[in-house]
Simulated scan of single mutants.
Amino acid sequence: MRRIANAGHEIASHGYGHQLVYKQTPEVFRQDVYRSKCMLEDLIGKPVIGYRAPSWSITEDSFWALGILNELGFRYDSSIFPFKNFLYGVKGAPRFPFRASQYCKDAGDLLEIPPSTVKMPLLNIPFSGGFYFRALPYPFINAFAKQVNREKHPTVFYLHPREIDPKQPRLNLSKRDALIHYYGIRGCKSKMTKVIRKFNCGAIRDVLL
């Protein structure tokens, strides 16, 4: 963590226990996020101002979490996915940054920064990270990112470190979850390398705040 921070990158919080927010009580969530924030700040000696929920799990059932993030001193959250599936997402959520007070009156000035999607006639299409990034051919990712830029917004890409390691130990998962976790792993690093070379990239704190 110190090496990453000293290299100029932003360190944000993903929580401590990596549990779905909507399966926690507000107090359990508060303790988990506070523990993570304090630990990271002690390690890097800098404020941690951003948060992203495990599996995008701030949904209609857990909008209360936005108020707690504001209470704990976060400046932005990036947990509300504007695409609904079986695990996460908020149908009709804005595609671009907005004030989280839209969903929680206690969120104050907390800024919500969604992962990028492209708008289609019936739904928003994810492309900028995770399974969607691994499953799509690079020309689609490139075209969709340019479309977001033409709408005068930065594209929010995201990547788990495990997604560039084809030799990682495999978990014993159901066929559905194995597909979500591992499909396209072998080509993921080369796609992200192309993104970094093709686009002018930066941290959320530097680009969107």
Rank of each mutant, 00 (worst) to 15 (best):
I4V: 14
N6W: 10
G8E: 03
G8V: 03
E10P: 00
G17D: 14
H18L: 01
V21E: 03
Q24S: 09
Q24M: 13
P26D: 09
V28E: 15
V28Y: 12
M39I: 11
I44A: 00
I44C: 00
V48M: 03
G50R: 05
I58F: 04
I58C: 01
W64E: 06
G67Y: 03
E71H: 07
E71N: 05
E71L: 04
L72K: 08
D77V: 05
S79M: 01
V90N: 10
K91L: 12
K91E: 15
G92W: 01
G92A: 03
P94F: 03
R99Y: 13
A100I: 02
S101P: 02
Y103V: 03
A107F: 02
I113Q: 01
V118L: 02
M120I: 14
L122N: 07
L122G: 00
F127M: 08
L136Y: 08
Q147W: 13
H153A: 07
P161F: 06
R162N: 15
E163S: 04
D165W: 12
K167R: 13
K167N: 15
L171P: 06
R176D: 13
A178P: 10
A178S: 14
L179V: 12
I180F: 11
I180R: 13
H181S: 15
G184C: 06
I185D: 10
I196V: 14
C201N: 09
G202A: 05
A203C: 15
A203E: 15
I204L: 08
